[in-house]
Write a protein that binds this DNA or RNA. Structure first.
Length: 269
DNA sequence: ATGCGCCTGCGT
DNA sequence: ACGCAGGCGCAT
């Protein structure tokens, strides 16, 4: 599910809704979504939410007392703010606020929630993530170095969160298409020009995804419960057999590092 | 570096 | 009935 653009969309919307809100009550409806012991959650009652942040595909609420509640949405996780209403099935965590409520719903249950001290959460993420692709830390020279050290297929490398934080299966295929690069190419074989194109393409597709409030294939919704529009703009992902938007050749789908991979056999080398 | 398991639901 | 799906962590 959610890759960087989807999580960033949720972050922006939640920031509007919940910063300054006070937590009335937290209900863990399925304990297994918590990576650490639950009793701690009781201590969230009465606390005010002071911020909503994102790093890669991870999102956290900052809370009074230097605490952070960290979410990873896995493949099908939703984080929705709403006033009221019947709870959908597979809602594992409910945070009641003085204005509305926040629910974490995830039918495949790959998502996780963790409570920790702010600093501990920061360290946890920094340890496992590479640079933010939309920040200056993700420079052409950084990317060039990262690629030079690997013979893995370029697509497999881009999916590693330690190389670049936040890319997943959709935006990786889209970026490689825009850059005109075959996803199977060993990373270290990219030329300087190709690295530059890839760098631009990565930033471009992510920004575009955010602009369209994310890609909804089947289950993703933003923090208001609304599907994103970016599926209408995908160039190769999910378009096997349909004409390449650039040359008309049918889009091919192969399996690469265990993931469905879409590309144009004519435009990508 | 690759494959498998974790889950549920949908399309074939 | 089977394969596949936006991801990740662990075993091999």
């Amino acid at each position: 599910m959610p890759e960087l653009p989807e999580v960033e969309t949720i972050r922006r919307q939640l920031a509007e809704k919940v910063i300054g809100a006070r937590i009335k009550r937290v209900e863990v409806r399925r304990a297994a979504v918590m990576t650490n012991p639950i009793p701690g959650l009781d201590l969230l009652s009465g606390k005010t939410i002071t911020g909503v942040s994102r790093r890669g595909k991870w999102l956290w609420l900052s809370l009074e007392g230097d605490l952070a509640l960290l979410f990873h949405l896995g493949m099908t996780g939703q984080l929705v703010w709403e006033e009221e209403g019947e709870l959908p099935p597979h809602t594992h965590l409910l945070i009641e606020l003085d204005r509305g409520r926040l629910r974490f719903t995830d039918f495949r249950r790959f998502g996780r929630v963790r409570l920790g001290k702010s600093e501990e959460i920061r360290d946890y993420l920094e340890e496992k993530l590479g640079p933010e692709p939309l920040s200056p830390a993700f420079s052409v020279s950084y990317l060039k170095n990262a690629l030079a050290r690997s013979r893995r297929p370029i697509k497999a490398l881009l999916l590693e969160q330690k190389a670049v934080a936040g890319l997943g299966n959709i935006y990786t295929d889209e970026a490689l298409f825009l850059a005109g690069i075959d996803p199977r190419r060993p990373a270290c074989t990219l030329t300087e020009d190709e690295v530059k194109r890839l760098h631009e393409a990565i930033k471009g597709v992510l920004a575009e995804g955010i602009r369209h409030r994310g890609t909804s294939i089947r289950n993703y919704v933003d923090a208001e419960g609304t599907p994103g529009e970016h599926s209408l703009f995908l160039r190769v992902y999910g378009r096997e057999g349909q004409p390449c938007p650039r040359c008309g050749t049918p889009i091919k789908k192969i399996k690469l590092s265990g993931r469905g991979t879409h590309f144009c056999p004519h435009c990508q080398h």
